[in-house]
Design a protein around this nucleic acid. Structure first.
Lengths: 64, 64
DNA sequence: TCATTATGTAATTTATATATTACATAACAT
DNA sequence: ATGTTATGTAATATATAAATTACATAATGA
């Protein structure tokens, strides 16, 4: 479940906590998603993408 | 949670049951996702997209 | 008319995403 | 050194995705 959340977040100089608050989840949830260990819901993926000014494909589609 | 799963499935002349089997879920789950009432997991969205030869954005991103 | 296929839906159960609380550490500034 | 910020992680609780089972109906063809 690799993804580009962490790099996109850091590119915007946001902390996990700031992203979490904007998205409406806890810091821990963001941490686990970045780590690639979670299988987040579509709604959460979309919320994250919008906050980071990315699309689903940018963040989650066939990330190397 | 509107999406383009149904139209993409029908374009490939697949039934809900055929898609469900390829994706590894039940027919009911596909039905509910198409109806837009579920908040599927990212993994499931990706499996569906691959079977339907689409990307996440094609199926789920800002569907009108 | 009857059987089959595709789909809708509802009730209950099971698996797991996410919250909550808590404690740890590294980095950095003061 | 000390305090603060950002992050990692673990244990338990809660919400909900998804499975399972079952019954319903419309469409179609034999």
């Amino acid at each position: 479940m690799k993804n580009n959340v962490r790099i996109s977040r850091i590119n915007l100089s946001m902390t996990q906590e700031q992203l979490a608050k904007k998205v409406g989840v806890t810091r821990q949830t963001i941490g686990l998603i970045e780590k690639g260990e979670y299988n987040p819901s579509l709604q959460l993926c979309m919320s994250i993408a919008k906050v980071l000014n990315k699309t689903l494909d940018d963040l989650f589609w066939e990330v190397k």
